[in-house]
Each structure stands twice: as C-alpha cells, then as structure tokens.
Design a protein around this nucleic acid. Structure first.
Lengths: 332, 332
DNA sequence: TTGAAAGCGTTACCAC
DNA sequence: GTGGTAACGCTTTCAA
C-alpha cells in the first residue's frame, strides 16, 4: 500500500510551531505591518522547513483577487536564436520583478484561446498580435488582466501594442536591391503554415519600397524542400528575375543551393538577400547579405508590462519596436 | 475616470438567471448526477454568455484539491524543428485528454525550481532530466503532483523516466566512422552553456563505441564563431585527426567551412558527421552525413502521463525512448 | 429539480 | 505581539 502524502498546509505548519495560521502567514511573507518575535519566527521557519511546506499559489490568488502570472502563448513555430534570447531576457526581467512567466500551449484560435487564458486569471498577457482580437482583449480584461500587450503588426483595441511591423524588413531588402541596380525582384513566400504572418508583411514592405519605381515585384511561394527549390530555380530565368529576397537566411540557403545546381550565378545572375542574420549566412559562399532584425530589449518590455500592471487605467501605449538593418555581404 | 470591470462570478450568473449558484455549477459543468430542466439550463447559459462569465481556475483547483495542469520547463536553448514538433504533438495530445499544458520559464537551479513549480500544484511535471534531483521530485510529489516524468540521461528516484540517452548518438557516429576506416576521431564540444548535457553524453558514446579498438578519441571544445572554427581547423593537421563528429549539423557546417578555408578536403582528409538531420546538411557540399534522432511520439508520452496520473501509486516506469540512425551522405 | 451550506488554503482586519 | 475570523470563487453533499 503506497501512502499518498498529504500536502502540508499553513495550518500544519502552525500546529507544529504552536502558533496560529495568521502568525505563520506573517512570518513567511515578512509582513512589515506586524512584528513577530525572533524566537517565534525561528520556530515557524523550522516547522515549515521540516514539513517541506510550499504555499498554494491558487489559494493565494483566490484570496488576493489577482495573480502574479504573466501569460504568453508558446510560439507555434520554432523560434530562432534572436527571438529565443529576447524571450529569455523578458522572462528573467519579469522574474526579477517578481512575476511568474508562463507559456501556454496554443489551444484553439482567437477567442477560444483568450477564454482558456482568462481562466488562469493572469495579471498580464503578452500575445503575438494575430489571433487576439478586440473581443479577446475584452475577455481577458474582464477576467482581471491588468495589462494586455500585443506583439504584432497592428494594434488591437484596448491593448497595449508593441508594433513589430515586418514590412520594414522587406523594405530594407528592397531598397538595397534597388540601390544595387536590380529591377526585377522576387520575394520568397514560405508555404509552411504559421509563417504567413511574417512573410506577407515582408512582401508588402518590398512592394511599398518599390512603389512608383520602375521595378517589378513577384511573389514566389516555396515549400521548404530541395525539390520545390530546384523547380523554382528552373523557372527563375523565364520569370526574368534578377534578385530574390528569400524571406530568411534558411530559405536563402535552400534557394542558393538550387540556383547553383541550376547553373545560375549569385550575385551576377541573381542577387539573393536573406533575413535574420544567422551564422549560416556568414558561412555560405558567396556570403549572404541579410536583414538583421532589432528586437526591443526584454528588460524594456518587462518594464512596460510592470508599468501597465501598476497603472491599469492608463491609455494603451503603442510603441513601434521592430527595426531592421541591411547587412551587405557578397550575395547582392 | 476609467471603470475597472469587476470579474463576473458564478454568483453573478446565478443572480441574473434567477437560480442558485449550485444550479449554475451543475449546468455549466454538465454534471450528470443531477438533471436540470431545459428552460433553466438555457437561462443559465444565456446569463453566462451575457456576462462573459469565465470560471476561475484557481478557485476550482482549490475546491477540487488538484489541478489539470501539466507543467514543463521552457527549454533553455532554442529547440530544433524535431523537438519542437515533439512538444507540439505532446501538447495537443495532452490537450485532447483535457490537461492544460504550461511551460514555466526557468527560475533557479534544481530544488529552487522544483519549489516554484510546486506552488502551482501541477497534476504532473515533465522535466528535462538534469536539474531535478530526488529531492525536487519529493517536493513536487508532496505538493500533489501525481506524476513526475523526467526526460533525460538517467532515472531519478521516485520519478518516471523517459531515458533519452544521447550516448547512442555518439555511438552511431563513431561506429560509422570506424567502419569507414577512420581511426583518429575528434569530437566537437560546443562551449555554449546549456549544451553540455547533450555534448558530454555524445562524447561518451563515441568513447564507448571505440573502446578496445585501435582508434583514438579527442574532445575538441569549440565556440560557435567563425574565428574559433578557423583556429581549430588550423590545429587539426597537427592533431592527426582523420574524422570529426561535429555535435550537430550546425556545428558541422561551421567546421566544414573552416576546413575548406584551411585547404583541407572533406571527406578525403577529414570525414565529418553531424547530427539532427537538418535540411542544412542536405544543402552542404559535400552533403553531410548525420545522425538522425528518433524521439518518442508526443501521443505516447501523453498516454504515459495520463496513465501515471490515474495510477499514482504504481511503480515508476522507466522507458528508453531515444534511438538514432546514421544517415550516410558524402561527407564521411 | 433546486437551494442552503460547508470547505478547499490563504491573508487581512480587528480584538486581545 | 499574537490569535480568531471572515472572505476570495467554486463544487458538492445533503435537505427540501
């Protein structure tokens, strides 16, 4: 017969220490409104340690009326080193401000997800812009979220916004290619689901940058397979393109290999520009020109969240945070 | 003056519907022990919708004595596509079994992390093996976790274990290189923190595979920079190596570029084997031989978790799940 | 078929 | 300084 251990509560600690539950709470939370004698404090701490007492977050939340939980959806696509570092910084900074950061696996789409998150009564929600509409924001706020921050291309009614507008990425790539004399520009559009939220704005950025010039823009859907890449490479000459903005460095590598196999020279026949400035691009030959993204510091976002939590009535803040620089190497 | 909305409770729903709180609970949870008349059900549902009622997970947890939360630490290093897919599958499968999967950002090390997790009273914890000792497992179980599953190289007392022993990866690479006639084998060891939990076992696997043969094994620490790689490449001839197992495909790419720049031919002078079977390896020239990992299906792990939760007294299950196959291409 | 009430673990107010 | 007590939102007996 296996004994399932009963979770010790603050009442158990109180009993063992010979004090009341209130005193236990005072001691363990270092409440400064009330002063507890040193011997009592020691007895309480000893009892807590002996029992292995761990406070019950749900009970505390219920009592307090709000949690310290900051909720983020877990990314649906594998994140690159850049965004991963950003997330790590953010978590660390929020942790230092005494928040608990929790990533919630994607549930349904849109408002269904918002409902699932609302059940946890997070004090703040950081959500990639797509998939959270004004209604979702309202649900979260009604459930006590004191700050809802969207990270995405457009602001959402009622929520703070960190505008991460990927059009700037396409814009930088296009401006560079145009400067280098290219006039027929293809834009790789990954067919993998979940990437369209990045690829479409990047295409739009290219279009906008070249609007009113003599350059043409062609969208090139591409699956992430060698076969699809070689088929595309074969079609490129008849499309008359002299440059491709390849969505990111990985797709650029795929394309460059296919171009080489098809006998097309980079950059003489076709210039290629990637994005994300991965190590990979520096290792390619020719070295890959790329658009490097600049994310906000995790610390800055953590402070925005903290400020929003402390001033829930304030006007939603809208901040444009994504910037991008072109890094020119040999492929363009 | 901004009105901060008060979160509606089941009492509000009851009031609006003109019934008791108990009835609301019955209706919204489809309790089958009690039958509620259809008109009443409709009134309750209508009231809930009108108020935008969302149940309070913490209150429910408190009352029920246990949550449906499965806790996993958020990965400390960016995860590749393979592991990301595994995680996605796992989350979906657990979601179908009505669990809420939550990733908790790394806090401290070891038992401090266990304590932080225990505060959330998860019904199950899935933790990468390192960083959770027997004491941490005990803390979690005492806090009501009905299943603790470690994913890692060794089992931990009291916890179920999915043994993911990366020695097999090194073993496959070494056996292959030996078969190809290589006798002086280097093993790349990334200097990036957090990777040693994978790289050391892989090195051990290489050592074991070659134990008792005439082959030698040399560990090669390497930072993920071009400079470090070219320094290493320059040193390779004097080390007399004829093969390198490069930890993974990305490090292999870094090394191969440095080897080429140093005038060393792959595979003639030095054979290179990567791991993880990324697209990248197929795009390199020569195409990269690699060790492909086979993770368990997320569904299988979800079932193990569910079974463990329903039979908390059962003996901890220990299952070896990691397998690896060598994919031979041109680099070895 | 519905309602009243107890209790989950915690903390904050108010007496002692 | 310390202890009793009520309340947070919810579910679930038990009674009506």
């Amino acid at each position: 017969m296996v004994q399932i251990p009963n979770t010790p509560t603050s009442a158990d600690v109180a009993r063992l220490a010979g004090v009341s539950r209130a005193t236990v709470s005072y001691v363990l939370n270092d409440t400064d409104a009330v002063r507890i004698s040193e011997p009592t404090r020691r007895r309480v701490h000893a009892a807590a340690r002996e029992l292995g007492y761990v406070p019950h977050a749900a009970a505390r939340t219920l009592r307090a009326g709000h949690s310290r939980m900051v909720l983020m959806p877990a990314p649906a696509v594998p994140v690159g080193p850049l965004y991963h570092r950003f997330l790590g910084e953010l978590q660390a900074a929020l942790g230092r401000l005494d928040y608990t950061v929790v990533q919630h696996g994607a549930v349904g789409q849109g408002d269904e997800a918002a409902r699932a998150w609302a059940e946890l009564r997070p004090v703040a929600v950081l959500a990639p812009g797509s998939g959270l509409g004004p209604h979702g924001v309202a649900v979260l706020k009604r459930a006590g979220a004191r700050a809802v921050v969207t990270l995405g291309p457009a602001r959402v009614e009622g929520a703070h916004a960190l505008l991460m507008d990927h059009t700037v990425v396409g814009h930088r790539a296009a401006a560079h290619l145009y400067d280098r004399g290219r006039r027929c520009i293809g834009v790789l559009l990954p067919e993998e689901p979940g990437l369209e939220f990045f690829s479409h704005p990047r295409l739009t950025g290219v279009r906008r940058a070249l609007n009113g010039t003599d350059a043409t823009v062609t969208g090139l859907p591409l699956a992430y397979t060698e076969r699809a890449a070689s088929e595309l490479a074969a079609r490129l000459p008849e499309l008359g393109l002299d440059a491709v903005f390849a969505y990111n460095d990985e797709y650029a590598m795929l394309l460059m290999r296919a171009l080489e196999d098809a006998g097309l020279r980079v950059p003489e026949d076709i210039a290629v520009v990637g994005a994300d400035d991965l190590m990979l691009g520096r290792l390619l030959r020719p070295r890959l020109s790329t658009v490097r993204l600049e994310l906000p510091s995790g610390r800055a976002l953590a402070e925005l969240v903290d400020h929003a939590v402390r001033h829930p009535g304030a006007e939603p803040e809208v901040r444009t945070v994504l910037d991008a620089t072109l890094i020119h190497r040999a492929s363009s």
